[in-house]
Amino acid sequence: MLEVTELEKTYDTGDRALKSVSFEVSGNEIVAIIGPSGAGKSTLIRSINRLTEPTGGSITLDGKELTDLGQSELRNARRDMGMIFQEFNLVERLTVMENILSGRLGYLSTWDAFRRNFPPEDISRAREILSRVNLDGVENNRADELSGGQRQRVGIARAVIQRPKILLADEPTSALDPETSREVMNLLTDIAHEDDIPVIINIHEVDLAIEHADRIIGLSNGEVVFNGSADKLDEEARDEIYRGGESLEQKQMASSEAETNISDAVVERGD
């Protein structure tokens, strides 16, 4: 179970990206975090495994506090959290197999990492996962030979082989076409149910979020403004998340400048 309590992040520039964010995730729940650009979605998810260092509050994973861990303890904690990135972030010049196995690096000595000497059970598991994400036979291809959708599935495989207690997905579908996006979302949902782990997904496309998520957290301007099941996300809640409480009509009357913002927000919600 992941508990985030009063999480704060203020950047060096003075921007306050997260304002006392609190929520819990447990079981095999799919939680979608939605909100306009700059709402702090990415900062939030990256703060959980401390790729971005939070400036206040607490994060616990299965009761273990993460915010005050030292370097080597943090590495151990990170092994339990699988992360999936918007731009896939594969090591392009390495093979698919190496990219997947890199998920096990936290358990390997540096010398073995250098020799690519992974234990046999990791390798056979990598093969299993490879066929689970529908990528049989590409293990010896270099990552830069794959299509976007294939790369993201390698990214997911890399996270799954960690045997994580939770999956964090930062805009996993933004770089993909709608068809592939849906496939990736289905894959993440399946993994959550089969491996019985929760998944937190940052996502632009509200429709995709409603379709796949059990619960939705709406973030606006660094604050949680909605936290409830997907079917409770009505028009009012969307206004709250995307327009700071004003309705579409009110905003349209405000000014022509605001109008561009609205159209941005509408575009962002994805068609």
Partner: peptide, 17 residues
């Protein structure tokens, strides 16, 4: 590409890894 460096960091690898 900083992204792939970050991804390897995120799985809990040491700096040498």
């Amino acid at each position: 590409d900083k992204g792939s460096v970050e991804a390897v960091t995120a799985v809990g690898a040491s700096q040498l890894d």
